[in-house]
Simulated assay, not measured.
Amino acid sequence: MSYTAKDVEVFFFAHDRAAFLRQALDCYLNQTVHGARLVLLANAPTEEVLQVARDYSSKGVELIYEPKSLNVYGCTERCQNIASRAITVMAHDDDLIHPAYLETLLKAYNQIPELNVALSAMGDWDDQPFNACDTTTAVLHNASEFSAYIFLGGSFTFSSASYRTEALKKAFRPDFKQYGKVQDVPFMLGACTDGKAAILQFPFIKYRLHSGQDCQTFSTGPTAEQWFHLDGLHKKLMNAGEKNLQLAWKLNTYHRLRIGWRNWCLCEHGKMTFSQYLAQARKQGLLSNLSQVSGLIVRGSLRKRLLNALFTPQKMIL
């Protein structure tokens, strides 16, 4: 089967950011391929968001009205229930999308057998204008490789990620309590199970930073325990893979924990020290003495070279 834009359904999560939403809708209306179904999933929407729905209805944008605020995790679960076309894209209302994004996604689904998840690297395409050679894609053959790509620092964004709808509906429901605001990674990994993932290496998604974003407020987590749950999932998946992935997990464990402490678990800094944080990780089987020592010794470019030797994802030009 050859997929076309008519096989794609794009859901926009919308609550109260009408100005951003208009720009996001325009991005999808101005794609190089046409025919995708565009659906505004308006949850407890403001009057301004409802006005956007009215303004864009003549352009083919449909409205699904949800009286309660669902947040991103509730919207994801709602999409699992109502998605009806072969490929589902879940778009956030505040991102900008490159005009060739859907066209490139369709190339991925048509050229990579058993593809369950396809998404974009994160960045700013203004820094590197798109051309015909920018369809390089990392092909991850299973959830273990997908986990390794993320755990070892590969670029990706959950925003406007796409899913083969059959795989999306089988993915486990979002578990915010266990993973907190890093739940997007377990969800994508779960949707990849029994299939492949693809990461477009050109930054088709421009992730905009602005006031009001929960991701800019680390007082809401993730907690250390939620970060440990995430790293525990990476451990499980990577250790179920080839020997090189098991070694890569051991080599990168300390570095990942440092990133978690420094960049993510800021809400814990007044409650524990870094040493106490590491002690908790050790109790949960996420850090061995050897991994910590090697992490302290093998750093910078040497660490990256060793990790690249252990795992470099297959690349293809679509």
Rank of each mutant, 00 (worst) to 15 (best):
K6F: 00
D7V: 11
E9K: 05
F11A: 02
F13W: 08
A14G: 06
H15A: 04
H15F: 14
H15W: 15
D16I: 04
A18R: 02
A19E: 15
A19M: 09
L21C: 07
Q31I: 14
R37H: 04
L38M: 14
L38C: 13
L40K: 02
L40M: 13
A42L: 10
P45N: 10
E47H: 10
E48Q: 15
V49A: 09
L50D: 11
Q51F: 00
V52T: 05
D55R: 05
S57Y: 02
V61G: 01
E62H: 07
Y65G: 00
Y65N: 03
Y65T: 01
K68E: 15
L70H: 05
Y73M: 02
G74C: 06
E77D: 07
C79P: 00
R85H: 11
I87D: 08
D94M: 07
I97K: 04
I97S: 06
P99R: 13
T104S: 12
T104H: 06
L105R: 06
Y109W: 09
N110E: 09
Q111P: 01
Q111I: 06
I112R: 02
E114Y: 13
L115W: 06
L115H: 05
N116F: 00
V117I: 09
V117D: 07
M122W: 02
D124N: 13
D127Y: 08
Q128I: 10
T137L: 04
N142A: 10
S147R: 10
I150H: 09
F151D: 13
L152V: 10
G153C: 07
S160C: 15
S160N: 14
A161C: 12
R164V: 00
L168V: 00
D175Y: 15
K177S: 15
K177P: 11
K181A: 02
V182N: 05
V185H: 03
P186W: 03
G190K: 04
T193M: 05
D194W: 00
A198Q: 00
F202S: 03
P203K: 01
I205C: 14
S211H: 10
G212Q: 02
G212H: 04
D214V: 00
Q216P: 01
T217Q: 10
T217P: 01
F218I: 06
S219D: 15
S219K: 15
T220N: 13
A224T: 09
E225A: 15
Q226C: 11
H229L: 02
H229N: 15
L230M: 11
H234L: 08
K235N: 05
L237Q: 13
E242H: 07
L245E: 12
Q246L: 07
Q246D: 14
L247P: 01
A248G: 11
W249T: 03
W249A: 13
W261T: 05
R262N: 15
W264A: 13
G270P: 02
S275K: 12
S275F: 14
A279G: 12
Q284C: 08
G285W: 02
L287Q: 05
S288R: 04
S294Y: 01
G295N: 06
V298F: 09
R299H: 06
S301C: 12
L302C: 10
L302M: 12
R303E: 11
R305G: 08
A309C: 11
F311V: 11
I317F: 13
L318G: 13
